[in-house]
């Protein structure tokens, strides 16, 4: 198979397990919410999603108590997703506008 090097590769792969992660189940359930209810009731098992790395940038959590209202995060937010509430000197995060860039979080080493 010198001219078609893919054939041996394909035949080998036929007997290996697929690379797909079967999240949430092998085939898409007819109703995802119904499936999740079943999982909650213990009638079905959920195939876990792929693990995220330790420093994954996800949804922002706001710690109200540590906030001093300096509004630096408002200034650096690229998508203007943070709003300063003048009367309480606290911020409000519009998660639908957030691009999860992590810019508002102080740099960490």
């Amino acid at each position: 198979m010198a001219l078609l090097p893919m054939f041996p590769e394909l035949l080998k792969q036929l007997f290996r397990p697929p690379a797909t992660n079967r999240f949430p189940a092998k085939y898409l359930p007819p109703s995802v919410t119904g499936f999740l209810e079943k999982v909650a009731a213990g009638q079905a098992t959920l195939v876990p999603p792929v693990q995220t790395p330790p420093k994954f940038r996800g949804k922002i959590e706001y710690q109200r108590d540590g906030c001093i209202g300096c509004s630096l995060c408002v200034k650096v937010c690229p998508s203007n997703a943070i709003e300063l509430l003048e009367e309480t000197k606290r911020i409000r995060i519009w998660v639908d506008q957030c691009i999860f860039c992590d810019r508002c979080i102080p740099p960490r080493r």
Binding site: L10, L11, T20
Partner: peptide
């Protein structure tokens, strides 16, 4: 199904 398995996919039922 067979094509999917050769491409390391699960494929449709």
């Amino acid at each position: 199904k067979l094509a999917a398995h050769m491409q390391a996919r699960i494929g449709p039922p």
